[in-house]
Design a protein around this nucleic acid. Structure first.
Lengths: 136, 136
DNA sequence: ATTACTGCAAAACCTTTGCAGTGGT
DNA sequence: ACCACTGCAAAGGTTTTGCAGTAAT
């Protein structure tokens, strides 16, 4: 998504175009690392020169309400933000911290109707297990 | 699990028997509500008369290390604790907050080896949807 | 008697909120 | 010129840590 498309997106939702908002969206869209608010803050600060956590959280909340971003609790102390709002799970490497998207199919009996499903798999990614195999 | 079995469990792991520890384990085992640290604190306070968050968290960490308790992040601000450490997922009712255990089978392609899997389904439980259907 | 455990108080951490000032429209 | 947005500073909620006193062995 280009900057002009980001600008369009913001305009279409009646939002003002600010450098912080544009850079937050650009970051989420170009680096699919599933960043934390902290990582977004650091990136935008380095690019735009001025940003606050207030603005980061404000923007993320706005984007969540717009349905443009999903917030995922990978731990009880932190959320990550995913610009891919389609149905998918996450693989978290407990060695390097990388987060991979995963596709899955689940079979289950539920005591009610579903709103959303979150699957998080913790493990060691191939890169890390290769590395460990050759170096430990 | 009886109190004497709880005492055995603690002894077998070289831990001292304190009223707080016994009551935390009793609570986790008798009420399978998947409590938060806050709920455990309140319960133990009402039963034992004296407890602190320090002790609640100390005990939960010890039990986690012993593999007797699983910590689950149902939101980014809070953890719940589950004495059932077997492989299962959770259904969280977004109306009443109840947490149900669910069994599931999942098919997926993974970019590494699995350590543990966490499935959380958010939705409305039958009780709440029945209630809503008749009263709204 | 020893030392593990409890619990207070303070800190750490992430996120939210109040409010004044700035900047996009 | 308007008012949405930014950002500081302070507060909120959950969890952790330091340390002194207490209680289980």
């Amino acid at each position: 998504m280009s900057v002009s498309q980001i600008v369009e997106l913001l305009k279409n939702h009646g939002l003002k175009i600010t450098p912080q908002r544009v850079e937050i969206l650009r970051f989420l869209q170009s680096n699919r690392i599933h960043p934390t608010a902290q990582q977004i803050y650091e990136h935008v600060l380095s690019k735009v020169g001025s940003v606050s956590f207030t603005t980061v959280y404000n923007t993320l909340h706005t984007l969540e309400e717009m349905g443009q971003v999903k917030k995922i609790a990978i731990s009880e102390s932190m959320a990550i933000y995913d610009i891919d709002t389609s149905d998918h799970g996450h693989f978290v490497c407990t060695v390097c911290g990388s987060i991979y998207d995963i596709n899955y199919k689940v079979k289950m009996n539920l005591p009610g109707t579903v709103q959303r499903t979150e699957l998080i798999v913790y493990g060691v990614c191939s890169q890390c297990s290769d590395y460990l195999q050759h170096n430990v």
